[in-house]
Design a protein around this nucleic acid. Structure first.
Length: 422
DNA sequence: CTCGGAACTT
DNA sequence: AAGTTCCGAG
């Protein structure tokens, strides 16, 4: 028997409190946190938030009455993950969000030297943040860690034994989970998928993928790649050794892939147990263009991410454009190899198609509804962003009033970036 | 601290 | 389904 829930005190009094999120308040909040590459936040649509809870919730009853964790509790425009009717953010996703932000580095951070491993430095604070996000003021590390332990069976996460508050992501599993119904029609030129190094593999996204899944997927991929990029060491991927020790349950992980590692769909999805993409049929590609998107600087990501304006195709350096002449081992050098200075040449979702392929991002699907790119709700009808919500952008379909199927025209998509001119 | 069962919520 | 809440065991 559970205790009957008691009435919890009002929690909305803290709405608008300046100490929540962003930490330094709107005035000093950067348009885009430095830890988030512009090219990623372009898609991620990661919002700043307002905290509907007191900074220090007191211990209370179980299952307190639902707080209106909706538009009322989230003044301005709630982010997608917290939208009143949308699916809710998942814990692993939230963890990744924290991990990618420098301002939380004192709370949770990647473990240096261990691929995918992170340490919760301040369990209480992480729990508090999680509780705030989920409108669960009574959240604590005990409960949060229980949720994390449920990830063990799902193989999203596992515990680093012997290290307190230390867990390890299984990125490949994470990404596979976000491709529940991966299906692709008509492969591009065979060499693009099979013979070419990962940087050439086209981005193949199931249409109809909910934007939050896309968000999650991108976040996971970005976290993975950034983490890898920051951990390129002569010994390669540390997780490879770990798998041999039997800590894994057979789930393929990136770290267990034979070196050299190449970030791309094949690496992420190509294992037999993780539902490799079907290449059965064909749907005409959609050709988004991003005329107004002019991404600023961004160090950690591949150079290709900086070339998203115009045709949605990252620039592929000449040395990567010929399948036969690629040098994959420069991605992650093997033992004794030279240090890597070049960033990863491409990410799966924006992997280049090769110049002959039309310089565009392809979004394939069997689903009939066409590309579904959910609008970021924080971009208001007036097309203006609240300064606090400036850290966001997403692909938008223009409202043409035309209900015809998505036309594969370059002008059908627009990336809205806060810095865009009106 | 860590684990996982069980009941419960959304 | 994905947690949340509680708790006994190691």
């Amino acid at each position: 028997m559970r205790k009957p829930p008691e009435e919890a005190g009002p929690v909305l009094s803290a709405v608008g409190g300046a100490s929540c999120w962003p930490p330094r308040g709107p005035a000093s909040f950067p348009l885009r946190p430095s830890s988030v590459p512009a090219s990623l936040s372009f898609i991620l649509c990661l919002p700043p938030q307002q905290c509907p809870f007191p900074a220090r919730p007191s211990r209370g009853p179980r299952y307190p009455p639902r707080r209106p964790c909706t538009a009322a509790a989230w003044p301005r425009v709630p982010p997608p993950a917290q939208a009143a009717t949308g699916s809710q953010i998942q814990l692993w996703h939230f963890i990744l969000e924290l991990l990618q932000k420098e301002e939380f580095r004192h709370v949770i951070a990647w473990q240096q030297g261990e691929y995918g491993e992170f340490v919760i430095k301040d369990p209480d604070e992480v729990a508090r943040l999680w509780g705030r996000r989920k409108c669960k003021p009574q959240m604590n590390y005990d409960k949060l860690s229980r949720a994390l332990r449920y990830y063990y069976n799902k193989r999203i996460l596992h515990k680093t034994k012997g290290k307190r508050f230390t867990y390890k992501f299984n990125f490949s599993r994470l990404i596979v989970i976000n491709y529940p119904l991966w299906e692709v029609r008509a492969p591009p030129a065979p060499h693009l998928l099979l013979g070419a190094p990962a940087p050439f593999w086209p981005a193949l996204l199931p249409m109809g993928m909910p934007s939050e899944l896309l968000h999650s997927l991108l976040l996971a991929q970005w976290a993975m790649v950034e983490h890898l990029a920051g951990q390129q060491t002569p010994r390669g991927l540390p997780e490879a050794a770990e798998d041999k020790m039997g800590s894994g349950s057979g789930a393929p992980r990136l770290g267990s892939l034979p070196a050299p590692f190449q970030p791309g769909p094949g690496c992420l999805l190509g294992s037999p147990r993780d539902e490799p993409p079907s290449l059965a049929s064909f749907t005409p590609p959609l050709l988004p263009s991003l005329p107004s998107f002019t991404p600023p600087l961004l160090p950690p990501l591949p150079a290709s991410w900086t070339h998203l304006s115009g045709p949605f195709l990252p620039h592929v350096p000449p040395e990567w454009q010929s399948p036969g002449t690629s040098k994959p081992d420069t991605l992650l050098p093997g033992p004794g190899g030279p240090p890597v200075t070049r960033p990863f040449p491409g990410l799966p979702l924006v992997a280049g198609l090769g110049q002959g392929a039309g310089e565009r991002l392809r979004l394939f699907s069997l689903r009939p509804q066409g590309l579904k790119v959910k609008a970021c709700p924080m971009i208001g009808a007036q097309g203006r962003l609240d300064p606090r919500e400036a850290f966001s952008s997403e692909i938008h379909r223009p409202k043409t009033g035309d209900k015809s199927p998505v036309s594969p025209q370059l002008g059908n998509f627009k990336a809205v970036w806060p810095l865009d001119p009106p």
